[in-house]
Design a protein around this nucleic acid. Structure first.
Length: 128
DNA sequence: ATCTTGACTTGCC
DNA sequence: CGGCAAGCCAAGA
């Protein structure tokens, strides 16, 4: 099982904060957890401890499901659809529409370094 | 201490 | 956002 370190705990905490019907990419979760280049680690953590959080709300940066590689793709899609997420004909999620944008309160609570906060504002822009 | 792997991302066509 | 090379970084062998 995945060792419980500070980074792992933050990752799980952040994923638990994603609202129903919203999604975040691996990279965005890593960023919010304070590791701008930790996307792969997020995937690895979910592979080991995914069942303890709403893992279906974490997808890749194109809106696609990376879980097809490990066999849980169909399940993830079903879970997301059950909470209202609609997939396009190409089988991807429209990030413009479903990407979660954490509130300022959440960002502040995470006590992130200034440069990371800057990156968050750049990569999680408000979108129409 | 290497070397390989991989639920990833970015840069460049 | 299609394809591909290069980064990235922790875990496992």
């Amino acid at each position: 099982m995945e060792k419980s370190n500070p980074f792992t705990d933050r990752v799980l905490e952040i994923i638990r904060a994603i609202p129903r019907g919203k999604v975040l990419s691996y990279g965005q979760v890593a960023l919010l957890a304070g590791a701008p280049r930790g996307a792969r680690q997020v995937g690895r953590i979910l592979y080991a401890r995914g069942r303890s959080v709403p893992w279906q709300r974490v997808i890749n940066r194109y809106g696609g499901l990376s879980t097809y590689k490990v066999g849980t793709g169909p399940e993830q899609r079903a879970l997301l659809e059950k909470e209202g997420v609609v997939f396009t004909k190409d089988g991807i999620v429209d990030l413009k529409k479903y990407q979660w944008r954490p509130g300022a309160h959440m960002i502040e609570k995470l006590q992130l370094p200034e440069d990371v906060v800057f990156e968050i504002n750049r990569k999680l822009p408000f979108q129409k």
